[in-house]
Simulated assay, not measured.
Amino acid sequence: MITPASSEESRSAAEIVAAEWSDVLSYGWDRIDPAVPRAAYQHPALRELWPMVSHGVLYLSRCTEWPWTDDVGTAYPLAKGGYRVRRESDNTLLGEVDTMEEAYELIAATLPEGCGPAVDGTPDDL
């Protein structure tokens, strides 16, 4: 007997990513400065990536399941103000900027070659 797929299985990667962005955009100060995900979400290419928050930092991945990719830049707030933008996959400092808007402009400008919408799966599915 064939059973209908669950609603989770039938959702597209784009729908899964959009739902996660909706959650992340609703987070309060207890999780992250709410302006951070809003700044990232302004960039269409970043909006297509899987967002996650840990220790007050927004991470973006090209896949929706662990282990997430680490080849998209991440903006880390600096104690002195501004942001340090790093790409963990090759331990590259992409730059230091004054504002979170500049940080996410830099991240969008330095996406990996061929970076497209996140896939529903792991890095092996890219």
Rank of each mutant, 00 (worst) to 15 (best):
E88T: 14
V72C: 04
A108N: 12
L93W: 01
V119S: 06
A103H: 01
A108L: 10
D30N: 14
Y76F: 14
V85N: 09
P67M: 07
K80I: 02
P77S: 12
S54L: 03
G56F: 01
G114L: 07
S7W: 05
D125E: 13
W29E: 10
W29Y: 00
Q42Y: 02
G56H: 01
P77N: 08
P37I: 01
A79I: 09
G81I: 02
R31F: 00
E65S: 13
E101H: 11
V57T: 14
G28N: 08
G81K: 06
P117G: 15
W66L: 08
G28W: 08
R38E: 14
A19E: 14
W29R: 11
T122M: 04
H55W: 02
V119E: 03
A40M: 07
R86D: 14
E48C: 10
L60E: 05
E101C: 05
S54R: 09
R62W: 00
A45W: 02
T92E: 11
S54N: 04
D124R: 13
A108K: 10
V36H: 07
P44N: 05
A103N: 07
I107D: 01
P117R: 15
E88L: 13
S6I: 08
V119P: 09
I107T: 02
W50P: 07
D124C: 08
R84T: 00
P123I: 01
A19S: 15
S61V: 05
P51L: 00
A75G: 07
S22V: 07
S10M: 15
G73K: 09
S22K: 15
L126N: 02
D124K: 13
G82T: 10
E8S: 09
Y59H: 12
L78E: 01
L94P: 00
W50D: 10
P117N: 13
C63F: 00
P112I: 04
E113Y: 02
D70K: 13
A18M: 09
W68M: 11
P34M: 03
W50I: 07
